Amino acid sequence: MKSFNYKQTPIYYQDEGEGKPLLLIHGFLENSSMWNDFTKLWKSNFRVIRIDLPGHGNTAAHTYLHSMAFYAQVCHQFITDLKLEKTIVVGHSMGGYIGLELIHQFPDKIDQLILLNSTALADSEERKAERTRAVKAIQQFPEAFVSMAVKNLFLPENQNRLKQAIEQAIAEAKKCTTQGIIATLEGLKTRKNHQETLAKTKVKSTIVAGKKDQVVNYAPTKQLAKETSTRLVSLPGGHMSHLEFPQETFEIISNLIAKE
Results as ranks from 00 to 15, higher is better:
Ile114Leu: 07
Gly96Ile: 02
Leu121His: 01
Ile88Glu: 09
Ala120His: 02
Leu102Pro: 06
Tyr97Asp: 10
Leu116Gly: 09
Ile110Ser: 06
Val90Phe: 00
Glu85Gln: 14
Gly99Ala: 06
Leu102Tyr: 05
Thr119Pro: 00
Ile114Asn: 10
Gln112Tyr: 10
Tyr97Gln: 03
Met94Ala: 08
Glu101Val: 01
Leu100Asp: 11
Gln105Met: 12
Asp81Tyr: 04
Leu115Gln: 07
Asn117Ala: 15
Gly95Trp: 04
Leu84Gly: 10
Thr119Arg: 04
Gln105Trp: 02
Pro107Asp: 11
Ala122Gln: 11
His104Ala: 14
Ser118Ala: 11
Gln112Asn: 14
Val90Trp: 02
Phe106Ala: 09
Ala120Cys: 07
Gln112Ser: 15
His92Met: 08
Val90Thr: 08
Asp123Glu: 15
Leu116Trp: 06
Tyr97Ile: 00
Gly95Met: 00
Leu116Thr: 04
Ser93Met: 07
Ile103Glu: 03
Lys83Thr: 09
Gln105Ser: 15
Ile114Arg: 02
Lys83Ala: 11
Glu101Gln: 14
Ile98Pro: 07
Ile110Val: 11
Gly91Val: 04
Leu100Gln: 13
Gln112Lys: 15
Tyr97Met: 05
Leu121Asn: 12
Ile103Pro: 02
Asp81Asn: 13
Thr119Val: 00
Lys86Cys: 01
His104Arg: 13
Lys109Cys: 09
Thr87Ile: 13
Glu101Pro: 02
Leu84His: 07
Asp123Trp: 08
Asp108Arg: 10
His104Asp: 14
Lys86Glu: 14
Ile88His: 03
Ile114Cys: 08
Glu101Ser: 06
Gln112Leu: 14
Pro107Met: 10
Gln112Thr: 14
Leu116Gln: 06
Lys83Gln: 14
His104Tyr: 10
Gly95Asn: 02
Leu115Ser: 10
Leu115Asp: 11
Leu115Val: 05
Asn117Trp: 04
Leu102His: 07
Glu101Tyr: 01
Asp111Leu: 01
Gln105Asn: 11
Lys109Asp: 13
Leu82Glu: 13
Ser93Trp: 05
Ile98Val: 15
His104Gly: 11
Phe106Arg: 04
Ile98Met: 12
Leu102Lys: 04
Tyr97Cys: 12
Ile88Asp: 13
Gly96Asp: 08
Asn117Asp: 15
Leu113Asp: 13
Asp111Asn: 14
Ala122His: 07
Pro107Gly: 10
Leu116Tyr: 11
Leu100Met: 14
His104Phe: 02
Val89Leu: 11
Asn117Met: 02
Ile110Gly: 04
Leu115Trp: 06
Gly95Cys: 08
Lys86Asp: 08
Lys86Gly: 05
Leu82Met: 12
Ser118Asp: 03
His104Pro: 00
His92Leu: 05
Leu100Asn: 12
Val90His: 04
Gly96Ser: 10
Val90Gly: 04
Ile114Lys: 03
Lys109Leu: 04
Met94Ile: 07
Gly96Cys: 06
Ile98Trp: 09
Leu113Glu: 10
Thr119Gln: 08
Gly99Tyr: 03
Val89Lys: 04
Leu84Met: 15
Pro107Cys: 08
His104Glu: 15
Ser93Leu: 10
Asp111Ser: 15
Gly95Tyr: 06
Glu101Asn: 11
Asp108Lys: 13
Gly91Lys: 05
Leu113Val: 02
Asp108Ala: 14
Leu115Ala: 05
Asp123Pro: 09
Gln105Ile: 00
Lys86Ala: 05
Thr119Lys: 00
Phe106Asp: 13
Leu113Thr: 03
Ser118Leu: 00
Glu85Met: 02
Ile114Asp: 08
Leu102Met: 13
Asp81Met: 09
Asp108Met: 06
